[in-house]
């Protein structure tokens, strides 16, 4: 299991599922550059999709 990738994926889905997100994720260090490229409107679309399609342990 790729633990750091898993942590990133779970944090992303939890953040989107759970509003002004990036701070929580950055608080994953190796992904900081990636996170800096997030664009508000695309995160909003992601949130919409996650709400629509996104829990089962």
């Amino acid at each position: 299991t790729h633990q750091d990738l898993l942590a990133f994926q779970v944090a992303l889905l939890e953040a989107l599922n759970a509003h002004p997100i990036l701070s929580r994720l950055k608080a994953l260090a190796s992904f900081e550059v990636y996170l800096n490229t997030f664009e508000d409107r695309m995160v909003e679309v992601a949130a919409e999709l996650v709400k629509k399609w996104g829990r089962l342990n």
Binding site: L5, V10, E14, F31, A46, R55, L56
Partner: peptide, 24 residues
């Protein structure tokens, strides 16, 4: 990817382009 942890299904989402992700 579309599933992780307790999330069984979402929309297909991209991943950061890293060596670890390529290996996976």
């Amino acid at each position: 990817w579309m599933s992780a942890g307790n999330f069984a299904r979402s929309a297909p989402l991209p991943m950061p382009y890293t060596p670890d992700a390529v290996s996976l």
